[in-house]
């Protein structure tokens, strides 16, 4: 077989593999969205779920998902940023930092259900937070931290060393250089990482079943005092998220329109995650352009 033929075989094989992946992805997305679309309506997106009768919505679950996402980000982003800055800018290459890196890698490969059970034991039981948004947010922080730290670290590492030298040569301290030059320069990449991890958090179910709970008590959307139990902002209330809701309906839903609700909720979830991904590209691209081309 000459090299020309083997080259063509290789190209054809790669085409087949690539198109298989695209077809599987398109079929999956298409199926979820097409079977979910008929269920979607304003009423469906805003009204609370019903346990036994048809016509329930996903309003509270949708709100819970976003609230949990924001709370998780508020907790995990500062930690991840600090860890990323430490690992990339300050840490010396020795056994301790390689241990930290290994630990982060191991943490990122933990099954999310294990993270959930750990969160249950520590936050729900030991700390007495109960099934609550706060427990869920802490569990998701464990789940989110490794990947976010890694992506921030990589974003910082991609900033050329000339920038660091430039800052120091201007008489900036190391911290000023990091704060005023390196982090801003890495911002587009950091933001992309944040939004992508938001998509992962949004779709997470297993880690939340045992931490944020599986019930969505009715919320009073006119009461924004976080200390009231029926307030949407109360972090100590149990909060079933969209992804958990889908799991719940499919395992033990007894409402007559369970299938339609599950399809609709799945479509909303997939569209949201897709939205996060597109947003990440858009924002990252825009910021990069603003920084480079004026």
């Amino acid at each position: 077989m000459n090299s020309k033929v083997s080259n063509q075989i290789a190209i054809a094989t790669l085409y087949v593999i690539a198109s298989t992946i695209v077809v599987i992805l398109a079929a999956l997305l298409g199926y979820i969205i097409i079977s979910g679309l008929p269920a979607l309506s304003w009423h469906f997106l805003t009204s609370p779920a019903k346990a036994f009768t048809a016509g329930g919505g996903i309003g509270i679950q949708l709100f819970n998902s976003f609230y949990l996402l924001i709370l998780t980000m508020i907790i995990s982003f500062p930690i991840a940023l600090g860890a990323g800055i430490y690992l990339n800018e300050y840490a010396k290459q020795n056994w301790l930092t390689s241990l930290v890196r290994t630990a982060i890698e191991i943490l990122s490969s933990l099954p999310s259900v294990v993270v959930g059970l750990f969160g249950f034991l520590v936050f729900v039981v030991q700390f007495g937070f109960g099934f609550s948004i706060l427990s869920g947010a802490f569990a998701l922080t464990f789940f989110n931290l490794p990947l976010l730290t890694r992506s921030i670290e990589e974003a910082l590492a991609a900033v050329p060393d000339e920038q660091r030298e430039g800052g120091l040569a201007l008489g900036l301290s190391k911290w000023e250089t990091v704060l005023h030059i390196i982090v801003p320069a890495a911002l587009p990449t950091i933001l992309t990482g944040v939004i992508l991890s938001a998509g992962r958090i949004f779709g997470e179910a297993a880690a939340l079943i045992f931490t944020a709970g599986q019930s969505a008590p009715a919320l009073n959307f006119t009461d924004w005092n976080p200390f009231n139990i029926s307030s949407p902002l109360n972090p100590m209330r149990p909060a079933e998220t969209l992804a958990v809701h889908i799991w719940k309906i499919n395992s033990e839903g007894i409402m007559p329109d369970a299938k339609a609700i599950s399809s609709g909720a799945s479509a909303v979830l997939v569209i949201s995650v897709l939205g996060f991904n597109l947003l990440a590209r858009f924002v990252g691209h825009r910021l990069f352009k603003r920084l480079t081309a004026g």
């Binding site: 050329p160 000339e162 920038q163 030298e165 430039g166 800052g167 120091l168 040569a169 201007l170 008489g171 900036l172 301290s173 005023h180 030059i181 801003p184 320069a185 920084l291 480079t292 004026g294």
Partner: peptide, 28 residues
């Protein structure tokens, strides 16, 4: 060190403007 490096400035082989505007680079 901060004062020293302000008194003794440095320009590098690779141009290394910061990813800000021209104005902010000079005023930095």
């Amino acid at each position: 060190l901060v004062t020293l490096r302000k008194e003794i400035g440095m320009v590098f082989q690779q141009p290394n403007p910061f990813p800000f505007s021209i104005y902010d680079n000079v005023a930095f």
